[in-house]
Amino acid sequence: KFGRVHERAEGPAKILAIGTATPFHWVDQSSYPDYYFRVTNSDHLVDLKEKFRRICNRTMISKRHMFLTEEILQKNPNLCSHNEPSFDVRQDILVSEIPKLGKEAVLMAIDEWAQPKSKITHLVFCTRSGVDMPGADYQLIKLLGLSPSVQRVMMYQQGCFAGGTMLRLAKDLAENNKGARVLVVCAESSAIGFRGPSEDHPDNLIAQALFGDGAAALIIGSDPKMGLERPIFEIVTTAQTFVPNGDCHLALHLREMGLTFHCTKDVPPTIAKNVESCLIKAFEPLGISDWNSIFWILHPGGNAIVDQVESTLGLEPNKLQATRNILREYGNLSSACVLFILDEIRKKSGREGLKTSGDGLDLGVLLSFGPGLTIETVVLR
């Protein structure tokens, strides 16, 4: 008597548009150690500064975009301390800036989509910054002038794996609601975790050397309108798992001094060791076991992770080039990073006149991972 209210779509979910945005301000990685130790009044920690310089040199990052300028840091000195309470200051900045950054990426996506924004039916927003109620999803709806009846899902504090999570959720929403057009937004800022150095917490140096700011937005829907919408990728399958006891290797915690970062040297080999089982589960039903026969979007948690995944799986050097390019130009953008790589690989395919948006290949994989050593596996066509 009370059956399904919403009719299912006929076809699989497809990515119809991609937009990205970054803050205008950026830092050069080669000179960042001098800048970082100067603005945090830590130049007296000579040995720690040299250690940080070595870490920065190993990241293979060229530059990173950041909202925090020297002027902002001078006005808010607690942000430059390692342990002073600064959460309220971070909140005041990020509750406002995260939706604005997301808006810039959304406008780029809508411009490519070339359809009225009134056709957006759902919003899925993800960030690890600016936790608030009502959330960044609500603020973004107002900034864009979208209908208050847009169906919203707000996900805070997920971390680097969440780019894949957003695709998984959007696929379910698009395929189970005929005519749905799902706006996916990942907006991230390193301002939540920026803090001064400490000899007692070397993990913090890794975070300060890796993370950048950026937002990515996608429009996802099934059954694209012929002649009006141009699909870029099809989302074939999605899956999530985590490595048992992985939280002892990688975890982040909200504290009075901001978001703290805990990471062990076992993260790269542990991820590399567990990736292939995810690939087998995803691609065995499709008859694929040659990992060089697919295109790759791999989250660059750090250069060591990229190198070890490449080595463990025997990947050809060009397979992870898009990942390395984004890491070099932006650093680790947390949940937004794989979506930047997705954009990079389709643009490169277009520039080179390849037959598909995925490096000329039919199928590919998007792998994202993060806290708890959670792994998201997304098969794309």
Rank of each mutant, 00 (worst) to 15 (best):
S334W: 00
C80T: 11
K100W: 05
E112W: 08
H253E: 10
L279N: 12
P231D: 05
H6L: 10
H249Y: 11
L380I: 04
E276N: 00
S149G: 14
Q139P: 14
E84K: 06
S277K: 14
F340S: 08
K348T: 00
K347L: 00
P116M: 07
F52G: 04
E7K: 08
L373R: 15
K348R: 12
P317T: 10
K319T: 05
G350T: 13
T374W: 14
I326E: 02
F340H: 00
D307R: 05
L320S: 10
E10I: 12
V243I: 12
H82C: 13
H262I: 01
N57F: 02
I280G: 04
R230W: 09
G246Q: 10
A304I: 09
D43W: 13
G314E: 05
D34V: 06
R53W: 01
L16M: 05
L361T: 08
F87A: 14
L48Q: 01
L380P: 15
Q139Y: 02
L146F: 00
D290A: 04
L363S: 13
D307S: 09
M66Y: 01
T312G: 12
C263S: 14
D362P: 10
T323H: 01
N325I: 11
Q115E: 04
D290K: 06
K51I: 10
F125S: 03
P285N: 15
D307M: 13
A336G: 05
L45Q: 03
E70S: 06
G11K: 15
V275L: 15
P300M: 06
S31C: 15
C263P: 09
A239D: 11
I110L: 15
P85T: 09
L107H: 04
P23V: 03
G364H: 03
A114V: 08
P116G: 05
S149A: 02
E112G: 06
V236H: 08
L16R: 02
A272P: 09
A272C: 13
L373H: 14
L259I: 09
I271C: 01
E50F: 00
E284D: 07
V89L: 07
N325Q: 14
E234L: 02
D43G: 07
N318L: 04
S30G: 02
N303G: 14
L254G: 11
R58G: 12
P371E: 14
G130W: 10
E71P: 14
I288N: 00
R38L: 01
L373T: 14
K273Y: 01
H262S: 09
F242G: 11
D47L: 00
T121V: 03
P134I: 01
R128V: 06
W113R: 05
K63Y: 05
E10S: 07
T20L: 03
A239T: 09
F87M: 13
K281S: 06
P244F: 11
R54Q: 14
E376N: 09
S357Y: 05
E70D: 05
S357D: 06
C263G: 11
T127W: 06
K103N: 13
T22G: 06
D290Y: 03
R255D: 15
G130F: 04
A17S: 05
H122R: 06
E284R: 02
K119R: 10
G11Q: 09
R328K: 02
I345V: 10
R381N: 00
P231F: 00
Q321G: 03
L16N: 07
C337I: 01
K281A: 01
E234H: 00
E352L: 15
F295Q: 02
F283S: 02
D111I: 04
D343M: 00
H82R: 10
S335P: 12
T312E: 12
L254T: 14
P269E: 13
T237E: 12
F283M: 04
I294N: 12
V27E: 12
L327V: 07
V131N: 15
E284S: 03
K319N: 05
R381S: 01
K117G: 02
L250Q: 15
I280W: 00
A9H: 01
F295N: 00
I280S: 08
L254V: 07
I271N: 03
I305S: 03
N292L: 13
L73V: 08
F233N: 02
A109E: 01
T238D: 07
E97S: 10
V106A: 14
H6R: 08
F340P: 14
P134Q: 12
R4P: 15
F261Y: 15
D359I: 01
Y32S: 04
A21P: 08
S129N: 10
Q115S: 03
A136D: 11
G19K: 03
I294V: 14
F37Q: 05
V243K: 11
D88N: 03
L101W: 09
H6P: 08
L298K: 11
H6K: 10
Q74N: 00
M60S: 13
K355R: 09
F369I: 10
I93E: 14
Q74A: 05
G364T: 00
Y35H: 06
V106P: 01
R255G: 11
D290E: 09
E310M: 11
A239W: 06
N318G: 10
D92K: 07
V267H: 09
Q91K: 06
P148C: 00
R346Q: 00
D343Q: 00
L366N: 14
C337S: 15
F283C: 08
K14Y: 02
N245L: 12
E10W: 02
A336S: 12
R38V: 04
G372R: 11
L146M: 00
E256I: 07
G364E: 02
V275S: 09
H122D: 05
V27L: 07
E104D: 11
T377Y: 01
Y330L: 01
S293D: 15
W113T: 11
G372V: 10
M133V: 09
E97W: 09
P12N: 01
A114P: 01
N83T: 09
K100D: 07
L298F: 07
E284N: 13
P12G: 07
R8C: 12
G258Q: 00
G301V: 14
L327F: 09
R381M: 00
G11A: 06
L363H: 15
L45V: 04
E344R: 04
Y36H: 05
D362E: 02
H65S: 03
N41Q: 13
V309T: 07
T264Y: 13
I375D: 09
L333K: 03
E256P: 01
E7Y: 00
C263N: 15
R324D: 03
E84V: 14
A17Q: 01
H253G: 11
A9I: 02
S86H: 02
E376H: 01
R351C: 03
Q91S: 15
R128C: 10
N274T: 13
I235K: 01
S335Q: 00
T356M: 14
I18Y: 09
P317I: 02
K319E: 10
L94W: 13
A21F: 04
P116F: 01
H262F: 03
T127S: 08
L228C: 14
P244C: 14
I341R: 04
E344W: 10
K348N: 12
L361I: 00
I61F: 05
G102V: 13
T127R: 11
I345Y: 02
Q74V: 01
F52I: 07
G302V: 08
R4S: 14
I235R: 06
G358V: 04
E284Y: 01
E84S: 12
C56F: 08
P371F: 05
D247V: 06
L101Q: 06
R381Q: 04
F24C: 13
K103R: 11
I297K: 12
L254Q: 14
E376R: 01
F295H: 04
Q91L: 04
V89Y: 03
E256M: 10
T121C: 09
E316Q: 15
A136W: 14
A9Q: 01
Q91G: 10
T264G: 13
V267G: 09
N332D: 12
I345E: 08
C248Q: 13
N245C: 08
I15V: 03
N41K: 14
V46R: 09
G350S: 06
N325C: 12
S357R: 05
E71Y: 01
K75R: 12
Q91V: 04
N83H: 11
L143I: 14
I61D: 10
V27C: 04
C248D: 14
V309M: 04
F87G: 13
P12C: 06
L259T: 02
N78I: 07
I297W: 08
N41R: 07
H299M: 04
E329I: 00
L250Y: 03
T69W: 11
K14P: 07
I93S: 12
L367N: 15
E310Y: 00
Y32N: 03
S149R: 14
R351A: 00
L259F: 09
